[in-house]
Design a protein around this nucleic acid. Sequence first.
RNA 1: UGGGGCGUCGUCAAGCGGUAAGACACUAGCCUUUGACGCUAGCAUUCGUAGGUUCGAAUCCUGCCGCCCCAGCCA
Length: 574
Amino acid sequence: MSSENDNITNLNSENDNSPKAETKDFIRTIIDQHNKSGRFDNVVHTRFPPEPNGYLHIGHAKAICISFGIAEEYGGVTNLRFDDTNPTKEDTKYADAIMEDIKWLGFNWEERLFHASDYFDQLYDWAVLLIKKGVAFVDDLSAEEMREYRGTLTGAGKESPHRSRSVEENLELFEKMKNGDFPDGAKTLRAKIDMASGNMNMRDPVMYRIMRATHHRTGDKWCMYPTYDWAHGQSDSIEKITHSLCDLSFEDHRPLYDWFLDQLDVHHPQQSEFARLNINYTITSKRKLRQLVEQNFVDGWDDPRMPTLSGLRRRGYTPKAVKTFIAKLGVSKKRDTIADIALLEHGLRDELNASSERRMAVLAPLKVVITNYPDGQIEEFDAVNNPESEAAGSRKVFFSKEIYIEQTDFVEVAPNRKYFRLAIGKEVRLKHTYYITCDEAIKDDDGNIVELRCTYDPESKGGSTPDGRKVRGTLHWVSTHDAVDAEVRLYAHLFTKESPDEDDDFLEHVNPDSLELLTDCKVEPSLKDLKKGGSCQFLRHGYFCVDSKNSTNGKIVFNRSVTLKDSWAKMKKS
RNA sequence: UGGGGCGUCGUCAAGCGGUAAGACACUAGCCUUUGACGCUAGCAUUCGUAGGUUCGAAUCCUGCCGCCCCAGCCA
């Protein structure tokens, strides 16, 4: 055989695979190894196991992208399983919201919707089996006592005095627990493992606790419920999951899950743990997000400032931008990393730049009268919808003698040669139409500028002149005769501190200026046609979407999804 | 005097014994009817640290140092 052929083969395969192969994260590397060894017959079957006790946030999106995304990549499937082992905290409404969010991200569990509660009977039988094997026992210790017996991080615990009950007695007691013969909290079923283990999870963990609560799915069938630790691994096993992907906090639990699975001698998934997602200037803690909602720092779980998926959706984020962001971050085991929210914003800008039509909107209007423009004349101009996409076509905009420009686009005296906007005696271009020069600023009694008097150059029609003179500044504008009133909400980071999460008083770092409400905005008439949730770029401002909740036929409300980059603002600062 | 993890640019992150990818951010400039977009250039002589092995180490060995998680009948 010629070595030349071999070389060609190798080169080709390198060209095909090397970019991906070089950047494979540790989870994909493990899966590759399994596929090589045939451990799971080349099957990749994952699951996403949320507890239906709150809304999904961007941290969950990472877990979703990993579990659903990796399975997809390897031609496998993913189950959605609600780990509903604590009825006091869970509710169907959360389950519904969770499903909506996963679908929004573009993932599909098809017919594989499961619940840990589907397995309560099986779990009970297995618990009986462990009792019979002599590796589980009914304990009478109270919660406080159990804590004392558990020992400390550095010192071994003590065995419960009830640990040596006979199998028969345990069986009888456990049956009574199920039948409701004991009050809440009176007894527990515990695994008999090792009270001296360095791993706290192995110090005779609780498998069942008595808790009279109506379960959102099983109703009042049970008065005791399995703990997460007892239910989770077995649920994965029952579903024949091959790769259980979860966050680092479950690393310590893996030995326990393995222990249960070994005792039961059932299918053994491979659990791999990755670092959770943290992002600066926000928080990804369900508990803390709930506080923001309950203490009215925000408008609800879907407030556009929230890092929840429903909040991001309402803010105008796209599933693609969220997924791209997560993919760019990668997967690792580094725990204390904090991703830069600028990367998330960049992804959105990047996508919307290519896809959003441009419109003109004046957020803080200043009236301009063009003194040499004929009274009552209305001129029609073509305005390109998206310079990045010819297919987006163009629309008509209508120019008149009176228009609005942005208050921030005018100063009486230009501060320096780098200033391109309007000032007295300065000429600027009005996007798509004419050059105007400011002659005079009209002020009210308090000295506030209330109106500008300008003249236009008829030669500049369309935005350039025969003499070819350079006009650096281009302003957006809206004509007073057809301007549409709108409310615009500008959002900034929810927190003023990069890592608000690092201390307990995170509420002190809530940004008081995270929402700026502008109620007197004037926008292009074509904006009336934008549907709820629809996005566009406001020229020179950023990307905005029509608020899906508070917009009405009479009043359009826009949410700023993300600003445009602003090198002028940066220049002014320095 | 416990157990489990992690330490590569401001941030995230490749690299797996052959002489530090990429992205974001940042800086400088070009372009521009969005001070947007785009383009060009710059941005870790060094991989927590100290030794050792080697012709050669971020990659192997040893010792230190630092950070994080675990003591719910939460998940």
